[in-house]
Amino acid sequence: MELRVTDLAVARGGIPVLEGLNFAVKPGRSLILRGPNGIGKTTLLRTVAGLQPPLAGEIGLDREAMAYAAHADGLKATLSVEENLTFWAAVFGTGTIEPALEGFALRELRDRPAGALSAGQKRRLGLARLLVTGRPVWVLDEPTVSLDVDAVAMFGAAIRAHLAGGGMALIATHIDLGLDEAEVLDVGPFKARAPKDEHFDEVFL
């Protein structure tokens, strides 16, 4: 099983943003996406995660294989850390949340309402959710926002453990996660050509 993407074109709001993307991620490997703001990294990740259909091309793996994590962590402020994680574990049909609490040092915070966590702690809880999905491909959009150096190391360790278990990861990030073998794909050259009007975005101004 590998994640193979062929001739993928993605659109945001009906406007093509990236086209002609080809890449493959083998089990145990990760792919880092880079590119300037607004180039379409988030759109690409949402397409791969199955939240929107591609404009053209194919994504080799089913959406059932993907665990998606975006800017918003999907936490409920009035539920405790444990209740939040237990909910996602139940939705994904996986049993225990202990490894996830352990992996992101959330054990002491388990009874704290998610609304009372700091931004970095919320982010850690959001990433801990990935561990309870039990899915092989992690599709991550800027996962390290508001994490401190220690938490980034914690996250790097979680990814390495995931990859060591045969998982895959597709990550849009600007910082170094300490993944030595990760391949890097700059999506800048795949920017879609403007359909008709060269200055199509001025239409909205």
Binding site: R63, D73, G74, V91, R129
Partner: peptide, 9 residues
């Protein structure tokens, strides 16, 4: 809060 995206996946 993004839960809907996560639920959809």
């Amino acid at each position: 809060d993004g839960s809907l995206d996560l639920l959809a996946t």
